Amino acid sequence: MAVFTAVSLDDLTQWIKQFPLGRALALQGISSGIDNSNFFLTTERGEYVLTIFENLRFEQLPFYVQLMRHLAERGIPVPAPVPAENGELVVTLHGKPAIIVSRLNGASQMDPQPVHCAEVGAMLARMHLAGRDFPLAQPNLRGLDWITATAPVVAPHLHEDEAALLRTEVAYQAQFAAGATYAALSRGPVHADLFRNNVMFEGDKLTGCFDFYFAGVDTWLFDVAVTVNDWCVDLASGRLDTARVRALLDAYHAARPFTQEEHSAWQPMLRAGALRFWLSRLYDLHIPRAAELLTPHDPTHFERILRERIAVAAPELPV
């Protein structure tokens, strides 16, 4: 999240009237992240989040917004989109698509322990199961097609050892994705960005997750790998913490048992998750966009994680 499009309370005076929320009382930009303009919004009816989409087009947004509604209706703790009086969930603000969603209670847990990882694993499994009957389909827009197209754009900005790692891993993932094991993996809507700052806790109890704007249809195992690579990692070294890995995977497995194909694909998929975020951060660093509030992420963090996943086998999936 970031602020690329400036918005003031005066801008919302008339605009907010199309929602059943009363007057807008306060607005605060959210500086974390890099893709949309986000604001905490206080109205006469409560606390919400306003998002203006900087890259996604109107025709792309029904998947994300309807997925949140679908999951919320099935008891998954996610932000619920607020419809305008005409029933539309996505409306125009400053010429760009925008939505208002409910604001979750709690705070991000940035120093997770096994108990927090277990909560995340169980919730992720329930989310995957709840999405099985979601009628819309959209590919993961940061999947292998994006990776293979973006890597040559970023490579000229890198040192030779970094560029060599990038070329080698992209080729490895392309070869793996062409195989029978990958084709047999279970699929459905995935969050694809379930990092610590996208989940809320009150104490040890998970209260919700948000930021679905990288969601798409992909393998559920990729979603698990992305999550493990953030929640269960030592930030300084990129190494996995076995206790946290076990807690997250065991809780997930209890709700949705892993398949045999997923066991075979686990190590490559952890590498795929690391590659996706390393490349995204390289792209954002070397080919940046202007923003009023912008906090770019350090790509070397996921370079360390990728090198660690290549060198050291992670704890296996539970059976």
Rank of each mutant, 00 (worst) to 15 (best):
P20I: 12
G22A: 03
L41G: 02
A24Y: 00
D10W: 08
V91N: 06
T92Y: 05
G75E: 04
P62K: 12
G87L: 02
I30T: 09
T51I: 07
S32C: 12
L93P: 03
G87Y: 03
S102A: 15
E85Y: 11
F58A: 14
Q60D: 14
L21V: 05
L89M: 10
L25K: 04
T13G: 08
A72R: 13
E73A: 13
Y48Q: 01
R45S: 08
P20C: 06
I34Q: 13
K96E: 11
A80S: 11
I52H: 00
T51M: 01
T43M: 04
S8N: 05
L27P: 02
I34E: 15
V65I: 03
V101Q: 14
L12E: 09
R74N: 00
S32L: 11
W15M: 02
N86Y: 12
P81Y: 01
F39L: 05
E85P: 09
F19E: 05
T42N: 11
L50H: 00
Q14Y: 09
R57L: 09
G29K: 02
M68F: 07
G87R: 01
A6N: 11
L67F: 08
D11I: 04
E88C: 14
H94Y: 06
G22C: 04
L41E: 13
K17S: 13
F58I: 09
V91W: 01
T92E: 15
F63N: 02
V65T: 03
A72Y: 04
L27I: 01
S31C: 15
I30E: 15
V101E: 11
N86D: 15
V90Y: 11
V78D: 06
R23K: 15
L61V: 08
Q18F: 09
E59A: 11
P79R: 05
L67E: 05
E59H: 11
T42A: 13
L9C: 13
P20H: 09
P62T: 07
N55M: 06
Q60C: 10
S32W: 07
T13E: 11
P20W: 03
I30C: 12
K96H: 09
V65C: 12
V65S: 15
P77N: 07
G95C: 02
L71V: 02
S32Q: 12
E54V: 02
G87A: 14
S37E: 05
E47R: 08
F53C: 00
I76D: 10
D10M: 11
F63P: 02
T42V: 11
Q14V: 08
G95V: 12
A72N: 12
T13M: 06
P62N: 13
